[in-house]
Each structure stands twice: as C-alpha cells, then as structure tokens.
C-alpha cells in the first residue's frame, strides 16, 4: 500500500516579514464607524430558534416524566397542581442548562421553548422565587412577546404562599396566573383532593414532604 505524503505548506510561505511601517495601517479604523451595538438603545434579534425559557401546554402534558429523566442537570421536578390529573414539570433555572433535551423528548409536544433569554433579579429570597416555575402556555408567551418584544422572562414576580401553598405568577402585562401546588414527585400527594377540612395538618406535612420526595426520586 502506498503511503500518502502529508501535505505541508512550506515555511517560507507562512512566515511574515517583520515591518515597522505596516502596523500604522491599523490607524485607518480611527475614521471608521465602530462596530459596537449600543445595547440599551439598539436591539439584537436572537436567532429564530434560540433556546430560551420553556413553555408548557398544560392541556397536552401527560405527566410522563420523560423530561425529568433526560434532564442532564436534574432541573425538572414533577409538580402536582390542583385541578390537573397529571403532574406537570417544574423547571429550576438555577440548574437548567438550556440544552432543550426535554423539549425534544416530550412525546406529546407539550413542552416547548421560546426565544426569551433575559432574566435578572436581585438577591432577595422572594426575588429568587422567579427561577423556579411551571412554564406557562405558549400562546400566552407569544402574546407577551408581541406586546413587549424585548425577550425578557414573561413573569415579573412569583409569590409562593407557604401556608396555603398557593402560587401566583404576576405576568408582565399585569394579569396573574394562580394555582395551588399539592405536592412534588411522581406519586400523587397523600391527601388527594380531600376537602380542605384540615389545612393545618397539610401545612405541617407538606414542607417535609417537599424536601424528602425529590431526593428519594433522584436516588432511583
């Protein structure tokens, strides 16, 4: 078998002659327009399928937890919401890597993503609630994007009431989404849709459950 010779470009072709004068060519940029994008005043459009925040069609989600299994950062936790038969994924943007594997794996196409990528908060505990959400409906997302068109997180503030376990999303256009989280994990929460006769007991058991269940699930 004949060996092919490696293609090597001669050194004399690559080596550049040193010069004192040539660096002065750099001065020409002084009179050209800078290529900066002045961010607060000018906008850049992200790519049409830029991987940003998630959207979730609550009607389509069947709670199969495929997204939770494929998530490389374990940022997805199934959440039981009052009034829904199946758990829905809750995405933690503190851990999410925006790989969007969960979107690819979703069998019903309930989980999607938008081009929104801006999310900044202060360091307070109630500000940081914003990083942990059950994604909202894609139609709502689209509507908000058309209204503001600045690619920010659609929710302004998330309020989590620890007593009643009620979550309120204050959207940017002033409307709110309110629901109640009954529990976390794949198994349905212990008192399933019992009348709210003993809310005091619920309060005591739930925070403990919230911490334990995800851990147990992760070990599996």
């Amino acid at each position: 078998m004949m060996e092919m010779p490696a293609r090597v470009v001669g050194e004399e072709k690559v080596k550049i002659k040193k010069s004192f004068i040539k660096p002065w060519m750099g001065i020409k940029y002084l009179f050209k327009k800078p290529v900066t994008i002045k961010i607060p005043y000018e906008k850049i459009e992200p790519a049409p399928k830029y991987r940003g925040f998630h959207t979730l069609d609550w009607k389509k989600c069947v709670g199969c937890n495929f997204c939770g299994q494929i998530c490389p950062a374990r940022a997805i936790e199934m959440t039981w919401i009052e009034g829904e038969k199946r758990p829905h994924p809750k995405v933690d943007y503190g851990r999410c890597t925006f790989c969007q594997f969960c979107v690819d794996v979703c069998p019903t196409g309930a989980l999607g993503f938008s081009e929104n990528y801006y999310l900044t908060t202060g360091g307070l505990e109630e500000d940081l609630e914003l990083y942990d959400w059950v994604p909202i409906d894609p139609k709502k997302m689209k509507e908000l994007n058309e209204k503001f068109n600045d690619y920010r997180f659609p929710v302004e503030r998330i309020q989590f009431n620890k007593e009643t376990r009620e979550v309120t999303y204050y959207l940017r256009d002033g409307s709110t989404i309110q629901f109640k989280i009954l529990g976390y994990g794949l198994r349905p929460p212990k008192p399933p849709a019992k009348p709210a006769a003993k809310p005091a007991e619920k309060n005591e058991t739930k925070p403990a459950e919230k911490k334990k269940e995800p851990k147990a699930e992760e070990k599996k």
Binding site: G26, I27, Y29, L30, K32, P34, V35, T36, K38
Partner: peptide
C-alpha cells in the same frame, strides 16, 4: 476614546 476608536469600539 481614541484607542477605543482604533479598536473599532465606541469607548
């Protein structure tokens, strides 16, 4: 400012 302009920045 001038150095920024030579580097094609606004400065």
């Amino acid at each position: 400012k001038a150095m920024a302009r030579i580097q094609r920045r606004v400065g």
